[in-house]
Computed example of a mutant assay.
Amino acid sequence: MRQFLLTSVLTGAAILSFTGSGQAGPMEDAKAIVASHQVMPVFSPPGEAFDAKSCMAGKKVLSIPITMTIPFNVELQKGMAAAAKEVGFTYTTWDNQLKVDQWIQGVSQAISQKYDVLDVAGGLNPEVLGPQLSEARAAGLKISTTHLYDVTQEPFKGIDYASKVDFTEAGRLLAAWAYVKTGGKPNVLIVGSSDVLPSTPFVKSIQAELKTLCPECKQKHLDVPVSEWATKIQSGVQSAVLADSSINFVLPIYDSMAQFVVPALRITGSEGTVKIASFNGTPFVLDMVREGHVQMDIGESLGWAGYAAVDNIMRMMCGLPSASKLNVPLLIFDENNIKTAGIPANFNDGYGDAHLEGFRKLWKLK
């Protein structure tokens, strides 16, 4: 309720200050979207409170991330492990290096050691493990996914509960930001990666919001598979900017892409005039915001995300409804607040710690 009221006040203030009345237009709508993600996150319960310690007593959860060679997955797993420790149940991360045979071994381990839950985390598509997950379910395990699907996507049929992420809202926010920062005249290059499961709805949300705000404005989409980021993003951005000198924003949907966008703008002489905004809150990209190479990055605390993911796993085990999405606020980092992310930046600074007290009360730990 507090978050709703604060957002409402900000939204109303933005509308009145720009129109002098309650009649909102595209610019006021866009500024309201931006303003709602510039306030310090507050905790909103994703569901009813429950006695997590009693419900999870003796339970075992094994999580298989797509790989533990990516810092994002390492931090997400740390958050999940910390939450499990507070509640008091066994939590195991299956270490792997992005190899299918290692994922399969993880499923076999969960079955043979009689785990209660098998979690597929951090971008690993459960369809790759369809037969193995069917075997795990037949053995009595519950199957969950963490930080994979967008809120608009239906999970794979072999999944019991999915901890979804609001990529769609992140897309709307990126579009609104570009619209506001260009004075309502964005010409946007969206850099996507359709081989990553939530990328399609993510890109579509940017495109749809831009069209709503500015039907006549120009937008282009560059699609680059993850395996080709290092070889295709820079050349693709260079070509697009050289072909259309009026491009004024590049929106790489995952912020690690920015490391290949910046050199492209530098080579074309457009660094500074063409701005970059992205999503994820990866520390080295937050450092790029502080250094002025990236204008804005939407962050999400992975410590907070870990607690939210464990909350949804426990709801599955305790017979409660699934949370509609991970209870993780999206926070704008730009020149005004970037120092709060740490120097150098890290995955968790700048968001506050409202989630810790919030989840402890929700789980009746205090």
Rank of each mutant, 00 (worst) to 15 (best):
T212D: 15
D297L: 12
W177L: 10
I233K: 06
C217N: 04
V274W: 05
T268L: 04
V274L: 05
I276Q: 02
S227D: 10
G184K: 13
T268S: 08
A277N: 07
L286T: 09
W177N: 07
E291A: 04
I267C: 04
S245G: 02
L242D: 11
S239I: 01
K204T: 06
L265F: 00
E228K: 14
F202Y: 13
E300V: 07
E209C: 03
V196Q: 15
V191Y: 02
L251E: 01
V241L: 03
V285H: 04
A264V: 03
I206S: 08
A240L: 08
V250M: 02
A277C: 08
S199Y: 14
Q259N: 08
S205A: 06
D244S: 03
I233C: 02
I206E: 11
L242Y: 09
V289Y: 10
S193Y: 12
G299A: 15
E291K: 11
G192C: 04
L251I: 01
S270N: 14
K204E: 12
E291C: 00
C214K: 12
I233P: 05
A230Y: 14
V289F: 09
T231F: 10
P283E: 03
N280M: 15
A175D: 12
E291S: 05
T282Y: 14
V226C: 11
L265E: 01
G236F: 07
V294F: 00
